[in-house]
Amino acid sequence: MNRRLLRWSPLAPATVLLLLFLAGPIGYCGYLAFTDTQLTGQESASFVGLANFRRAFADPAFRNAVVLTLVFTVVSSLLGQNTLGLALAGLMRRASRPVRALTGAVVITAWVLPEIVAGFLLYTFFERRGTLNALLEWLHLPTQDWLFTLPILAVSFANVWRGTAFSMLIYSAALAEIPREVTESAAVDGAGGLRRLWHITLPMIRRSIGTNLMLNTLQTLSVFGLIWAITRGGPGNRSQTLPVFMYDQAFLKSLIGYGTAVALLLLVVGALFSAVYLRLLREDT
């Protein structure tokens, strides 16, 4: 018995750290969300049941944040990173070596840069006096203040810029696993490029697609720094996704309880996605 305990003792530091600093806050999240705690006056907090959640669902600003989060996730993760990543991975298999290396280096650099630097860079790109408008002027196309007219699309594109490398790497690995004979015999049988993609390539990498979509979505759900650096959720609340809304309510409006309720909803959505991801992994092995 003693020996068994000793054997498992190396697990202790990690477990203690995880319990104290990860499980603890998650548990505390579950408690705070049902109180009316405010930033000032921790003592006066009382249990309010589901009031925070009722308030959230009746709050137009919350619904706005949910819609924007959906737009942000669909545009930047599902359509952007995922599709562009697959396209880049596919093109890279055909391209010549120097072009492949160059593109890989540029796209991966965008991914490795710290989030806040990426935010600054994309801010200068989309800003009214920035590079995008300079390019449009050069092409004699109408310019506009992108961060004012389409802030949510600007931050979505910023997220595509920053996150595509991840999908590209996943799909590169997945495509490399497809035996060349399979696609070649299909080509010999006269299947065109699109049909080969739809009937052979995509079914063969469907596991990677599932994994990639899950991880992208989870990552996108928790983007804060990028949006904060580019628009701070503005103008007004037109790029205020759920993490930004949560921060705004908890700290700028001092409603810790309400902000935590929103955080709990975000956490539950994240947990659901994680559970699906675990299922996908289990089918994998």
Binding site: L221, T260, L266, S274
Partner: peptide, 17 residues
């Protein structure tokens, strides 16, 4: 499972804690 959880979401309770 914890690997995938959005850490952003627990930051408000972490702050309070």
């Amino acid at each position: 499972f914890a690997t995938c959880l959005p850490i952003t979401a627990v930051m408000v309770p972490v702050y309070a804690l």
